[in-house]
């Protein structure tokens, strides 16, 4: 008993997360605790052993490394004194989103929603909002895969009333 407690104090505890397709990921405990879903698995559940595997069925192993990377970096940013310059955080965030397709972004939003992590969800939804910025209605519909269920008259009426919102759009 004594030996186990002393070893845990010297090295960071790890928690194993299991992604949807069965792959295992070892994560440091503070990083894993950023995710409310993982946290609730342990809090108030004393039987749960810390070396237990936490199944995360809605998160595919494709996105797991990126999500963990985000949390490692951001928790490091938070700990650092003085706080890192805004440019550094911004550069990391931009690099994070680079090469991410719309579908990948969507899947990560779902994953962040499932993991109940506010910071990541905020960041990703902002990215999604940026991707539909200055785009036409047709583009937004195609982006979200939504059917137009307005009648033509209704659509024309709303369009005429809010005409000002349709100037100066970007190319789709």
């Amino acid at each position: 008993m004594a030996s186990s407690s002393s070893s845990s104090s010297t090295q960071v505890k790890k928690i194993t997360l299991k992604a949807a397709d069965g792959k295992h990921f070892e994560v440091e405990e503070p990083v894993a605790m950023e995710m409310e879903t993982v946290k609730s698995f342990f809090v108030g559940n004393e039987d749960a052993m810390k070396d237990m595997v936490v199944p995360l069925l809605n998160v595919s192993s494709e996105h797991m490394p990126a999500i963990l990377d985000f949390y490692r970096n951001h928790s490091e940013f938070r700990k650092r004194t003085p706080p890192p310059p805004a440019e550094e955080v911004k550069a990391f965030n931009e690099a994070f989103l680079e090469n991410k397709s719309d579908e990948q972004l969507m899947e990560m939003i779902m994953a962040a929603n499932f993991l109940n992590t506010k910071e990541l969800l905020n960041f990703l939804t902002e990215a999604a909002a940026n991707r539909i910025k200055n785009k036409s209605v047709e583009y937004v519909r195609a982006f979200f895969g939504i059917e137009n269920d307005f009648t033509p008259e209704e659509e024309a009426r709303i369009r005429a009333e809010n005409e000002w919102a349709f100037d100066g759009l970007d190319e789709d």
Binding site: A129, I132, V137, V140, R141, E147, F150, R159, N162, A165
Partner: peptide, 9 residues
């Protein structure tokens, strides 16, 4: 952008 989203569905 928000008012264009009104017209989506």
């Amino acid at each position: 952008d928000a008012y264009r989203c009104v017209l989506v569905c």
